[in-house]
Design a protein around this nucleic acid. Structure first.
Length: 869
RNA sequence: GCCGGGAUGGUGGAAUUGGUAGACACAAGGGACUUAAAAUCCCUUGGGACUUUGUCCCGUGCGGGUUCGAUCCCCGCUCCCGGCACCA
């Protein structure tokens, strides 16, 4: 026992005790309601960072709270273990990715344990384990069978120097992030999953999920459903091997009479075919190769010029029967719609600009009112609502009605009809990487693509691979992996050397936590016991990719009969980032990370050039090594203790908001815990000596106030955690209670009351229960010092006496014309008439009212009286 | 451009159903204790004015509105953050 609060001493002890007691182990228990709480699992980079501490602390409070509330809580942890950094480390440090990954896992697991998180480590999993990725290889085979996994050629970012495909995130200003070489677009074969089959269901469920609105909006935009019409334009003298019509997608079928030319995507095969036929091959081919070099970044950059080239071909506007020229244009995307656009320069700004540039006719077909031709009046396309003109039998129709009528008209003529288009593309899962799950197929020169037999799974990643970072897929270098016999014909064949996108692993790990020890099947009955996740917590940066893929994969598993859940995560909390100031040297100005000599927490970093202590400078930014504003959480824990770090995070900001790191703030957190410690430790003998049973009804004066504060605090903290997820205000409420307890302790008269020590004991006991989900080490320590047994986590969450939260007397605000002019202390159960009388007799109210007549008297019981004159 | 979110003291933030704006902290200033420091405790702290210890005025990005009463609801703006973007 010690009088001083020494966090690390007690924290190490309690960690051991919890582990020995297997306190965080959870087994399925049908007698209690289940609660599945999950935080996004980390990539095992080697050390946890501040963002991890924030999200896992929030999760741990909820997990512990729900458990005390009587739920059977599943709170697992694992490792998103495949990915690029392991391959980079292999290159740089000549260590095998597996070895690097597993040693990082050990290090990070120790760090997480050090902070006291209540994970059931029996359920730990790592996605690079063949016992894990075996099952997603199986799902891939099932999808292949159903036709929902397929192979196609598509455009990818490619670095010619490194001979590798780059993700969009690895392209920096059009150049390779590694070697700086200009990135080109290249056609390449790859495996795709038909997520577009689920576009509508994914969209519909966004209406039913309890998720932050902005995440749902992002997903809706990403899916990008738009209603319109497909319209087939007959081609005049079609080239050989092509259909005699070209289909376009439009959201404005009402403007079809105004289509005066057609734009094809530059890469559209029809464009070159038409050009060949009409002697314009050279011009179109030149244009195509120029557009091919323009990468995605360039295309969205400002000042990007719309341009095109005439193919020499024509098609027919199916309504006006006029011959309209066909252009290839750089702003038409092959991947969206049909890669062909009917151009209506009168009512689309891009088409208008294009028509002006190439001197093509502009026809008005929608007019806002009877007189005005808005197009000639303004010199730009008119895209607003209106009535049809120059549209034959459809003249005079409202444009919304015309959209429907004209789309139906095309359906009747078998030239298209109403249709829907999506922005969502199928999910390309092929990666030319080593450290990922192998895609289980074999390429046979005779039989084509042959699935690896299910009985051969897992298809294990070979270990003896040299990782150079260049030369395409590392697996292609491993002869004993590549050379196989075809399972179908027995002839020589080659194994697929692509591995799966690591987003596949993170799309179902939460299912596997239900039964990670099940080796005979992907899942057993436990998966439907636990799924779906009741509450998911993670960073906003995963708003689209991970959260969309996980939703998709859940529906895939459901339709394959593996699970029952429709959606993986019923509720989602996206926690804000942790920000910190940058550093500035008095002589050298603002510094980047590599010019800073780092210092431990609470100490000032120094300038690498002149060794001057640095000063903080704004604005605050996300922590990163290159900015030099990182902090190592473990150093903080060593210095201040895990409990201090935990409560600081909870108190500094509500969870969904960005959080400014403050070096001073954490000392305030420690000061508070120290006050809690002293409240119990300095009064230990008196608190231990109190009788168990006493009558709270006998409390008077200050003691009664403290008892009321206690009950109010329990109510407040419960509501804040359970309903609002605002841990900062929960902590604030507990601070108020501690302050009140100290004030009562300082009051000699109150202290002399025989009920003082029994009351204070009750306050301290409840206080420790309220604090235990947030700061579990100090809470268990003080609980034990006071003679309590067991662990607070196994005790029920405290209840409160609703009657005791009510004050006998309340302050009523007295207003004249809505301005506060006086206050009155009145009995809580005062009658309205009494209040009115009291207000009108108040001197100050009389003064401000003057002799003006009373127009109205507003009485809000328990709050205020407003005299309106 | 479209979609979403936001703006409150020196700082982080609070105000839960339209009812005392600034809880709880941090920082700052003053004081007590101490040989001193640390630690701890107490006081002050939105701005302004005055007949200066208690009273008045102003104040939640800006301008209007609804209401007895608006940080909260409505209309019109400004700025900031995030996402998407020649999506036909």
């Amino acid at each position: 026992m010690s009088d001083r609060y020494e966090p690390r001493r007690i924290e190490i002890g309690w960690n051991e005790k919890w582990n020995q007691a297997d306190l965080f182990r959870v087994v399925e228990d049908k007698s209690k309601p289940k609660y599945y709480l999950l935080e996004m699992f980390p990539y095992p980079s080697g050390r946890i960072h501040m963002g991890h501490v924030r999200v896992y602390t929030i999760g741990d409070v909820v997990a512990r709270f729900k458990r005390m509330r009587g739920f059977n809580v599943l709170h697992p942890m694992g490792w998103d273990a495949f990915g690029m950094p392991a391959e980079n480390a292999a290159q740089a440090a000549k260590v095998h990715p597996a070895k690097w990954t597993y040693s990082n896992i050990e290090a990070m697991k120790a760090q997480l344990k050090k902070i006291g998180y209540s994970y059931d480590w029996q359920r730990e999993l790592a996605t690079c384990d063949p016992r894990y990725y075996k099952w997603e290889q199986l799902v891939f085979l099932k999808l292949l069978k159903k036709g929902q996994a397929y192979r196609k050629k598509s455009q990818v970012n490619y670095c010619p120097d490194c001979e590798t495909v780059l993700a969009n995130e690895q392209v920096e200003q059009g150049a390779c992030w590694r070697c700086g070489q200009e990135v080109v677009q290249k056609e390449q074969w790859g495996w795709f999953l038909k997520i577009t089959d689920y576009a509508d269901e994914l969209l519909e469920w966004t209406e039913k999920l309890d998720w932050p609105e902005r995440v749902l909006t992002m997903q809706r935009n990403w899916i990008g459903k738009s209603h319109g019409a497909a319209i087939k334009f007959p081609i005049v003298d079609p080239p050989q091997g092509f259909e005699d019509k070209v289909e376009v997608f439009t959201t404005r079928p009402d403007t079809v009479y105004g289509a005066t030319f057609m734009s094809l995507a530059a890469e559209h095969p029809l464009a070159l075919a038409l050009a060949k036929k009409n002697g314009r091959e050279a011009q179109v081919a030149e244009f195509q190769s120029r557009v091919a070099k323009q990468n995605v970044n360039e295309r969205i950059a400002e000042g990007f010029v719309k341009e095109g080239v005439f193919t020499g071909g024509y098609c027919t506007n199916p309504m006006t029967n006029e011959k309209i020229p066909v252009y290839a244009a750089n702003f038409v995307l092959l991947e969206y719609g049909t890669g062909a656009v009917m151009a209506v320069p009168g009512h689309d700004q891009r088409d208008y600009d294009f028509a002006v540039k190439y001197e093509l006719p502009i026809v008005e077909v929608v007019r806002p009112d009877k007189e005005e031709n808005r197009i000639t009046n303004t010199g730009e396309a008119y895209t607003g609502p209106g009535v049809l003109v120059n549209s034959g039998p459809f003249d005079g129709l409202d444009f919304e009605t015309a959209k429907i009528k004209i789309a139906e008209h095309f359906a009747e003529r078998d030239l298209g009809g109403p249709t829907i288009s999506y922005r969502l593309r199928d999910w390309g899962i092929s990666r030319q990487r080593y450290w990922g799950a192998p895609i289980p197929v074999i390429h046979c020169p005779k039989c084509g693509v042959v699935p690896v037999p299910e009985s051969d799974l897992p298809l294990v990643l070979p270990e003896n691979v040299e990782i150079t970072g260049i030369g395409g897929s590392p697996l292609a270098q491993v002869e004993e992996f590549v050379k196989v016999t075809c399972p179908s014909c027995g002839g020589p064949a080659r194994r697929e050397t692509d591995t799966m996108d690591t987003f596949v692993e993170s799309s179902w790990y939460f299912d596997r936590y239900a039964c990670p020890d099940q080796d005979g099947a992907m899942f057993d009955e436990r998966v439907d016991h636990w799924m779906p996740v009741d509450q998911y917590i993670g960073g906003i940066e995963h708003a689209i990719l991970h959260l969309l893929y996980a939703r998709y994969w859940t529906k895939v598993l459901r339709d394959l009969g593996y699970i029952k859940a429709d959606e993986p995560f019923m509720r989602l909390l996206t926690q804000g980032m942790v920000l910190r100031n940058l550093w500035e040297c008095p002589t050298h100005g603002p510094l980047r990370g590599d010019k800073i000599v780092p210092a431990g927490p609470g100490q000032t970093p120094r300038c690498k050039h002149c060794d001057s202590p640095l000063t903080a400078t704004g604005p605050k930014e996300k922590m990163s090594k290159s900015k030099g504003n990182t902090l190592d959480p473990e150093e903080l824990v060593d210095l201040y203790g895990a409990d201090t770090v935990r409560i600081f995070y909870l108190f500094a900001a509500p969870p969904e908001k960005e959080m400014d790191w403050s070096d001073e703030g954490i000392q305030g957190a420690q000061r508070f815990l120290s006050r809690v410690w002293r409240l119990a430790a300095e009064n230990l003998e008196d608190l231990k000596a109190t009788p168990d049973s006493w009558d709270s009804g006998l409390l008077q004066g200050r003691l009664k106030d403290l008892y009321r504060k206690l009950n109010q605090t329990i109510k407040k903290v419960t509501d804040e955690i359970e309903e609002r997820w605002h841990f900062n205000t929960a902590v604030a409420a507990i601070m108020e209670l501690v302050n009140e307890a100290y004030l009562t302790l300082a009051d000699e008269k109150a202290k002399a009351d025989p009920l003082f020590w029994p009351l204070l004991r009750k306050v301290v006991d409840k206080l420790l229960l309220l604090l235990s989900p947030m700061v579990p080490h100090i809470a268990d320590e003080l609980h034990t010092m006071l003679g309590g047994g067991g662990f607070l986590l196994e005790q029920p969450w405290p209840g409160y006496d609703p009657e005791a939260t009510q004050a006998d007397e309340i302050v009523i605000v007295l207003q004249v014309n809505g301005k506060v002019r006086a206050q009155a202390l009145v009995p809580a159960d005062i009658a309205e008439e009494e209040l009115e009388k009291l207000a009108l007799e108040n001197d100050r109210i009389k003064k401000f009212k003057g002799d003006k007549p009373i127009k109205k008297l507003v009485v809000v019981p328990g709050r205020l009286v407003n005299v309106v004159v």
